[in-house]
Amino acid sequence: MARTDPQINLRIPADLKDALDAEAAKNKRSLTAEVVARLEASLGPATAAWAKAFPYAAAAATGDDRVIQAAAEKLAHANEIARVRQAVLDLKTQLVSLDSQAMQAHHELRRLHKEIDDFDRKKDVAATTDLLKQRVELERHLRAIDSQHKQVRLALRDAERLEASLAGRS
């Protein structure tokens, strides 16, 4: 409470004042702070700071259906933006995972090429055939990763556009 806040003179029964004094002492507050806390609890805080910190609750406290509807729409919009942002993060995480899988597959493919060359020089047809089969499977796996990567990139582009659109309407 600031000294510039308005003052009021109030007559109350002595037993009510004694009860307020006891509650103020119990709550480690001044009598004025206790009375203000109890009034705010029953009437709702009326400060601009409270309304700024809790705009949706402040809107509901007005009782004006238009204000409440506008606040509800803003809240729904903010939730939609948060949902889309989470989707963007999830898609970016998928891309990182796919990139990691592709790097591992390329590393394995290089290793297979070296082994194929070694067994080919040794004229080990059976081992070379097995390695060639592994290479075909690994190349198929790489194509699948590449296809997933393209799909996720397209979904990410769409999600980022939606996010920009929603943020523009804020």
Results as ranks from 00 to 15, higher is better:
A126L: 13
D118T: 15
D130R: 15
L39P: 00
R11F: 04
D158W: 00
P6E: 10
K114I: 00
F54Y: 15
D117S: 14
I8M: 07
I81G: 13
P55F: 06
Q134W: 12
A70T: 09
L75H: 07
E139H: 05
A51I: 03
L154P: 00
Q7K: 06
E80M: 02
D117L: 09
A14Y: 09
K92G: 12
A48V: 06
T47I: 00
R143S: 06
R66Y: 12
L138W: 09
K52Q: 13
R143A: 15
L98N: 01
V136D: 06
L132G: 13
E137N: 08
R85G: 01
A46M: 05
A57K: 06
R38V: 10
D118N: 12
R3F: 01
K150P: 00
A14L: 07
A59M: 02
E23G: 02
D124M: 07
E108W: 10
Y56W: 07
I116Y: 07
K17V: 11
A19Y: 15
A58W: 13
D118K: 14
E137T: 01
Q151T: 14
T47A: 05
D18E: 03
E23K: 11
A76T: 15
Q69Y: 03
L138S: 13
G63C: 03
L10H: 04
A82Y: 04
I81P: 15
T62P: 07
I68V: 15
P45D: 08
E80Y: 01
V35N: 01
E137A: 14
E137C: 03
E80R: 15
A127N: 02
Y56E: 13
A159R: 03
E163H: 08
A144N: 10
H113G: 10
S165N: 12
L91R: 02
S30G: 03
I81E: 13
I81M: 04
R140A: 14
D65E: 07
S170V: 15
A126S: 09
A53M: 12
A48Q: 10
A164H: 03
Q94N: 04
A41L: 14
A51G: 14
P6T: 05
S42T: 08
R83K: 14
R38Y: 04
D117M: 11
R135Y: 01
A60F: 12
T128K: 00
W50E: 14
R169T: 14
Q148V: 14
K123E: 11
R143T: 11
A61G: 10
H77C: 09
E23F: 02
I8C: 00
